[in-house]
Simulated assay, not measured.
Amino acid sequence: MARIDYLKAQVARAERLAKAILDQHTAERLQAFAAECRAELQVLSLKPAA
């Protein structure tokens, strides 16, 4: 469960930074990172609890 909380925090942080930053390339990389975290969250949420 800790990994899920970590990923949720990273998504929120990356999206917040992407909106505030002026450099377009960095903003795009932050959005891509947020998308990767969301994809991992989706995979983790489908796994049954151990």
Results as ranks from 00 to 15, higher is better:
Ser45Met: 06
Ala12Val: 13
Ala18Gln: 06
Glu28Ala: 09
Arg13Leu: 15
Thr26Ser: 10
Ala2Cys: 13
Arg3Asp: 06
Ala9Lys: 14
Lys19Gln: 05
Gln31Leu: 07
Ser45Val: 08
Leu41Lys: 00
Leu46Val: 02
Cys37Asn: 09
Cys37Lys: 08
Lys19Ile: 00
Met1Thr: 15
Pro48Ala: 12
Leu30Tyr: 05
Ala50Lys: 10
Ala50Thr: 08
His25Phe: 11
Arg13Phe: 13
Ala35Trp: 02
Arg38Lys: 13
Leu7His: 03
Arg38Val: 00
Ala14Gly: 05
Glu15Trp: 02
Val11Arg: 07
Tyr6Phe: 14
Glu15Thr: 03
Arg13Asn: 12
Gln31Phe: 03
Leu22Ser: 14
Ala49Phe: 08
Thr26Val: 10
Arg29Asn: 05
Ala2His: 15
Ala2Val: 15
Ala49Lys: 10
Arg38Pro: 00
Lys8Cys: 11
Val11Cys: 10
Arg38Gln: 07
Pro48Thr: 03
Cys37Phe: 02
Lys47Ser: 04
Asp5Glu: 15
Ala49Ile: 13
Ala20Met: 06
Arg29Glu: 08
Ala27Ser: 08
Lys47Gln: 12
Asp23Trp: 13
Ala14Gln: 08
Leu22Phe: 14
Leu7Trp: 04
Ser45Trp: 01
Ile21Phe: 05
Ala9Trp: 10
Ala49Ser: 09
Lys47Glu: 10
Ala14Val: 01
Ala20Val: 06
Lys47Met: 11
Gln42Lys: 11
Ala35Tyr: 02
Leu30Ile: 05
Lys8Glu: 14
Ala50Asp: 13
Ala14Arg: 06
Lys8Tyr: 11
Leu7Glu: 04
Ile21Met: 07
Gln24Asn: 08
Lys19Asp: 03
Thr26Gln: 11
Gln24Ser: 10
Lys47Phe: 09
Leu46Gln: 12
Glu36Cys: 07
Ala20Leu: 09
Leu41His: 01
Glu28Ile: 03
Ala49Pro: 04
Ala32Asp: 03
Leu44Asp: 02
Ala14Trp: 08
Arg16Lys: 14
Lys8Pro: 08
Leu17Pro: 02
